[in-house]
Simulated scan of single mutants.
Amino acid sequence: MANRFRNERIEIKLTKEEKALFEEKMKMAKCKTMNHFLRKVVSESNIYVVDLQPFREIQGSLFRYANSVKPNC
């Protein structure tokens, strides 16, 4: 194995449900092996980072406003 091009190993543990979902998506991607599927997902997927802080501030403001309003009951 020392002479192989891909000689790094990653091991993951999944629940039965996660494994079923993994296999379902692997079939949808038409990949024959888990190795091929994982390399495809890692190399072709984009990662997006979204800053939700402004929305958290708006949510906090709405929460404070809603708590300050008294119901007409």
Rank of each mutant, 00 (worst) to 15 (best):
residue 64 R to T: 15
residue 53 Q to Y: 11
residue 46 N to K: 10
residue 62 L to F: 14
residue 73 C to D: 06
residue 57 E to S: 12
residue 52 L to V: 13
residue 54 P to D: 03
residue 10 I to T: 12
residue 71 P to T: 05
residue 23 E to P: 01
residue 12 I to T: 02
residue 45 S to C: 11
residue 31 C to W: 00
residue 55 F to R: 05
residue 21 L to T: 04
residue 35 N to R: 05
residue 65 Y to V: 09
residue 27 K to I: 14
residue 56 R to I: 15
residue 8 E to D: 09
residue 2 A to N: 09
residue 22 F to K: 01
residue 6 R to G: 05
residue 13 K to D: 07
residue 34 M to Y: 11
residue 13 K to H: 10
residue 50 V to P: 01
residue 47 I to R: 00
residue 67 N to G: 14
residue 54 P to Q: 15
residue 21 L to G: 04
residue 31 C to L: 04
residue 26 M to F: 01
residue 35 N to G: 14
residue 23 E to Y: 15
residue 63 F to M: 14
residue 62 L to P: 00
residue 43 S to P: 00
residue 16 K to I: 00
residue 48 Y to W: 05
residue 41 V to E: 09
residue 1 M to G: 10
residue 32 K to D: 10
residue 56 R to K: 15
residue 13 K to R: 12
residue 22 F to S: 00
residue 72 N to P: 09
residue 62 L to Q: 06
residue 23 E to G: 07
residue 46 N to Y: 12
residue 67 N to A: 11
residue 64 R to K: 14
residue 43 S to D: 10
residue 10 I to M: 14
residue 7 N to L: 06
residue 25 K to N: 06
residue 70 K to W: 04
residue 30 K to H: 12
residue 34 M to A: 09
residue 40 K to F: 10
residue 59 Q to H: 15
residue 37 F to C: 01
residue 62 L to D: 00
residue 25 K to T: 02
residue 70 K to Y: 03
residue 70 K to C: 02
residue 37 F to L: 03
residue 6 R to N: 14
residue 56 R to Q: 09
residue 9 R to K: 08
residue 18 E to G: 05
residue 51 D to R: 11
residue 53 Q to A: 11
residue 7 N to W: 11
residue 10 I to C: 15
residue 29 A to K: 05
residue 10 I to A: 13
residue 71 P to E: 07
residue 38 L to R: 02
residue 52 L to A: 12
residue 29 A to P: 02
residue 35 N to E: 12
residue 14 L to C: 15
residue 62 L to S: 03
residue 34 M to N: 08
residue 71 P to Q: 13
residue 28 M to Q: 15
residue 46 N to S: 12
residue 8 E to C: 08
residue 23 E to M: 14
residue 53 Q to G: 04
residue 22 F to T: 02
residue 59 Q to E: 15
residue 15 T to I: 02
residue 24 E to K: 15
residue 49 V to S: 11
residue 9 R to A: 07
residue 32 K to E: 13
residue 44 E to A: 07
residue 48 Y to V: 08
residue 12 I to S: 11
residue 4 R to V: 12
residue 49 V to A: 06
residue 19 K to A: 05
residue 56 R to W: 05
residue 62 L to C: 06
residue 40 K to Y: 09
residue 21 L to I: 11
residue 4 R to G: 08
residue 1 M to C: 14
residue 46 N to R: 08
residue 50 V to H: 10
residue 23 E to A: 15
residue 71 P to A: 14
residue 35 N to I: 09
residue 15 T to W: 00
residue 34 M to K: 08
